[in-house]
Amino acid sequence: MDDERIQLGHGGGGRLSRELVDREILPRFGDGPLRGLPDAARLPTLTGPIVFTTDSFVVQPLRFPGGNIGHLAVHGTVNDLAVSGARPRWLSLALILEEGLPRAVFREVLDAVRDAAAACDVQVVTGDTKVVPRGQCDGMYVNTAGIGEALPGLELDPAGLRPGDELLVSGPLGDHGMAVMAAREGIAIAGGPVSDTAPVHRLVEALGDLSPAVRFMRDPTRGGAAAVLNELVGGRPVGIQLEEAALPFSPSARAVAEALGLDLLHVASEGRVLLVCAPDAAAGILERWRARPEGRAATRLGRVTPEAGRVVLRTAVGGRRLVDVPQGELLPRIC
């Protein structure tokens, strides 16, 4: 038996399946509701409203500078709950593996899920593993669903946006997308971009008594800040103005973006929050964020304007331009 690679039988429900669960899953996740492998997790009652979300992860390559698909699968769902105003509590974990996946990679990803979940104070309470024939998935796909409990005081309503409101961001934008792109294009360089994949729920909890001043939060993943902001003001009587000089980009992400001809406002982050708040709360929120390691580089990004539906960038050299929604595909330049 080739013990070093995932075989079709590992998803077949028989002896190999059982061996995989016993050797890989239970030692990592078997302490809570997963003990005894029930078909569904039985969870305690929550006092407030329940917040529920799901996300699938298909990143390629599976490993990239700063993390792997396991970190992403935890942080992605934790962050979706957090920016919806919830404290994340429980996750499900569904794995689709490609026949032939090295067992070492599988273990590395499971370790990442275990460690990331522990660091986020969330529990993996139910899960599933399937194996598909070689060539029918790209190494592995991961799905997580998450349940959280709503935090009091956070009533997010973009309809409440007013000109003069401040737009804040918890750290540099685009590091994750550039780290993955650099790894994929084989331009991984020493000192190159490192993914920012990380949980943001503690930044949300740190808002505390300033929560009522918050109008909007979102983690800028696919499509980057540009997609989030365009969606936010689309069809509304307000717009956003960004200051190019204030845009927080790390030097290594900028270098790769310049080389590939990409706009970092279109590039995904996996550990950042964009937040719009009433002007008088901005300084307090920044102070609380900067007191935490994941918010150390938090900064003002721009403000809400009366320009209906438009996201505009005031460029460093003093011009103005639209910040558009990214297109579906990125074409190489030919001159």
């Binding site: 706009d263 960038l313 460029t315 050299v317 003093g318 011009g319 103005r320 331009r321 330049r333 001159c335």
Partner: peptide
């Protein structure tokens, strides 16, 4: 075409007086 992109991306038309017009010619292959 790379000038056309750079002019748009940096909002350079905004910095020019109305009497100066930048026209994009046949520069993209």
């Amino acid at each position: 075409g790379t000038h056309t992109m750079a002019i748009a991306r940096h909002g350079l038309r905004d910095l020019l007086p109305p009497q100066v017009e930048l026209i994009s010619g046949p520069g993209c292959p």
